[in-house]
């Protein structure tokens, strides 16, 4: 059918029994197969098969949620890479930063990517929330999804904050010292919570290990769980809600 070898290889792969067992739909050349792309894929199944055309307009969502999730994917990927070189102990944590900088190939690049990605994720989540507010997209039936969004914002901030300590440099140490001392001022529950969070009275090696576990295990799992609920509910509530529409015209001239 084709002169070049690549389409033939592609065809051979697509017709193989193994590929057919993994991907159950044919080429997305008909609307039936396009719907199967969504139906038959666990990850794309978060989306309905069809969406309203107007929701694809840029000003409908400004794609802020998509930007935030994209930053999250970048953070997961680079975060796993950084974990291969990181020891959550004093003073090895700081030495690992130096090693990333001077020894590891592309170490600086992936650390930078992780740092700027974190800033983008926080910024994206904040702007997304503002957009949803001004579009009044928290109205019924989306009330609970707004609350899930607030939880996601808090988890994002906590993730960023726990990550802030891990390089164990002056910036990290004093940023976290000041922040956890704020918690101490909360009546009754403040001091014990701070003690448990830090694993001691001061920011020490215990605190570094605890923040590491929170940053790499507990908070990401919480984030992905709530994110699953968030996106699933967007679909259940009829897709993304854009700018409020003018009330249905009482009378339309033909």
């Amino acid at each position: 059918m084709n002169g070049t070898p690549f389409p033939r290889i592609g065809l051979w792969v697509r017709e193989s029994a193994l590929y057919r067992s993994i991907v159950r739909h044919g080429a997305a050349d008909t609307n039936r197969n396009r719907s199967l792309v969504i139906f038959e894929n666990l990850f794309l199944h978060m989306h309905p098969v069809k969406v309203r055309e107007k929701t694809l307009k840029f000003t409908h969502t400004y794609w802020l949620g998509a930007v935030t999730i994209s930053a999250m994917f970048v953070l997961i990927a680079t975060g796993i890479l950084l974990m291969f070189y990181y020891h959550p102990s004093v003073p090895q944590a700081y030495r690992d930063m130096k090693e990333l900088k001077f020894v590891v190939d592309n170490g600086v690049f992936y650390r930078n990517l992780h740092r700027w990605g974190a800033h983008l994720m926080v910024l994206g989540a904040l702007l997304h929330m503002v957009r949803v507010f001004y579009h009044r997209a928290y109205r019924p039936p989306r009330q609970f999804n707004w609350v899930v969004g607030v939880v996601l914002l808090l988890v994002t901030l906590l993730l960023s904050y726990t990550g802030y300590l891990l390089p164990w440099d002056q910036l990290a140490f004093w940023g976290v010292s000041v922040g956890t001392n704020m918690a101490k001022e909360a009546p009754i529950l403040g001091p014990p919570i701070r003690f448990l969070l830090l694993g001691g009275n001061i920011v020490s090696e215990n605190a570094l290990l605890r923040f590491y576990v929170l940053h790499c295990v507990l908070l990401p799992v919480a984030l992905l769980g709530f994110l699953g609920v968030h996106i699933w509910r967007v679909r259940k509530d009829g897709g993304v809600q854009g700018p409020p529409e003018p009330p249905a015209d009482p009378e339309v001239e033909p």
Binding site: A28, L44, H47, K50, K54, V67
Partner: peptide
């Protein structure tokens, strides 16, 4: 008007992801 999610939405999401990766 309704459109198919694939390719209309999925491709746009992929583009957003690519832009984010390039910018970062």
């Amino acid at each position: 008007r309704w459109v198919m999610t694939f390719p209309n939405l999925i491709l746009r999401e992929a583009i957003v992801f690519q832009i984010v990766v390039i910018a970062l």
